[in-house]
Structures are given as structure tokens and as C-alpha cells.
Simulated scan of single mutants.
Amino acid sequence: MRKFIASAVAVLVVAVATTVTADVSLEGVKCVVAPRAAKADKSAEYKDGKVFFCCGNCESKFEKDSKPFAVKANHQLVSTKQYEQKACPFSGGPAKDSTALKIEGAKVAFCCNNCKGKVEKAEDTEAKLKLVFNDKAFENGFAKAKAEKE
């Protein structure tokens, strides 16, 4: 009986893990710690979502202290469509499609061309990511994506 229960639990765990990650496409998604491809079987819970890593070492580093990786983790939540834009990341005002930019594959829109200009003037991709996906901007501009009705 114990073997049956253990087997049933193992099957359930695999099924739940597969279902959770099945909704997330990792195509082109990089690990939040190292610049390598993220893997579905290496993940950690983060802000009501999951972030993905290339290996167990990166997963351990993130779990030990996620703060140094917050910008990339926030970006990954948007890139994997677990979070969606709700407003301008700077002002919190309504975002306009006419101001949209692609930042490392994630489409981000702003309330005005002044906000868009801040990002366009940023020195490099890293600086753009820090502007748009730091914790304050992330809280202003993004929210957990609503699950689609089945």
C-alpha cells in the first residue's frame, strides 16, 4: 500500500510540475543569473510566478539572495508572460501602444514620449533593463497575468 501511495504522489508531483511549466514558453529565455538558456526543470518561486535557471548552481545562488537578480527576474516574468503590462513603468499612468519599445524581447509601452525617451537614451541594454524592470518600475507597470478561461 505504501508503494502505491508513493507512486501516486510521485505521478501527481510530475503532473503538477509539467502543467505549471507547460504554460510558460522558455524559447529564447535566459537564466536570470548566467547568460545561458533557461531550463524548465530549474526554477524558483518569485513574485507569484516562477523564474528559470540554466543549472542548479544558479538556482541556489538566486534562492540564497534574489535581490542582485531582481531586474532580470522581473524581466523574465514579463518575457514568459507570467506578468503583463498594466501601466507606464515610470508614471503608473495609462500606457500607449504608440510609445512601445522592445527591450530584450519584451514589449514595453509608456504613457508619453518623455518616458519612452528616458529608455531610448539609456547607455545600453543593461541600463534599459534596470530602468524598466527595477522593483519600483515593475510594481508601477506590471501585474500578474490573469489566467485564461478554459
Rank of each mutant, 00 (worst) to 15 (best):
G56W: 03
A17T: 09
K146N: 10
K3E: 15
A17N: 10
S79C: 00
K64P: 02
K128Q: 15
S79I: 03
K61E: 15
F138Q: 02
E84C: 08
E120G: 01
C111N: 01
F4Q: 12
K86T: 14
K121C: 09
F133I: 04
A73N: 05
T99I: 01
R36N: 13
L131V: 04
A40V: 08
V71P: 06
V51G: 03
C88S: 14
E27T: 14
T125V: 13
T21A: 09
F53R: 01
S7V: 03
F4A: 11
V33D: 05
L77G: 00
K144A: 13
A17W: 07
K47M: 10
K128I: 07
K72F: 08
C31F: 01
N57F: 10
D124I: 04
M1P: 11
F53M: 07
K39W: 06
T18Q: 13
Q82C: 05
L26M: 07
F52V: 00
G141H: 04
K107C: 00
E63I: 12
A122Y: 06
K146T: 12
I103G: 08
F69Q: 06
K144Q: 13
K72Y: 09
V51N: 01
F69A: 04
T19G: 10
A145N: 02
V13H: 03
K118C: 09
T18D: 10
V24M: 07
P89R: 00
A15M: 08
G117N: 13
E45L: 11
E139S: 15
M1F: 13
N113C: 05
N114P: 02
A109H: 06
I103T: 08
T21R: 11
L101K: 02
G105Q: 05
A44E: 13
F69V: 06
F53N: 00
V119C: 06
A143V: 15
G141E: 05
K30H: 09
I103Y: 01
F110Q: 00
K118W: 10
D97F: 04
A8E: 10
E148K: 14
K102H: 09
E104P: 00
K81Q: 08
S7A: 14
V29R: 03
E84L: 04
A40H: 02
Y83V: 06
E84Q: 12
F133V: 01
K96N: 09
F4Y: 13
A34C: 14
H75V: 00
A147G: 07
A34E: 12
G56C: 02
Y46K: 00
K107P: 06
G141P: 04
A15W: 08
S66N: 10
G28N: 11
A145E: 10
V71G: 01
A37P: 02
A106R: 05
I103D: 09
V16Y: 11
P94N: 09
G105C: 06
G93A: 13
G56A: 12
M1T: 11
V132M: 00
K64N: 09
A143I: 13
V14P: 01
V24P: 00
F133D: 05
E120K: 15
A73W: 03
K67F: 05
D23G: 14
L131C: 02
F4W: 08
G117K: 11
G105Y: 07
T99Y: 08
S98D: 15
V32T: 12
N134Q: 07
V16M: 10
S91Q: 05
A109G: 07
A95Q: 10
K86I: 12
Y83E: 03
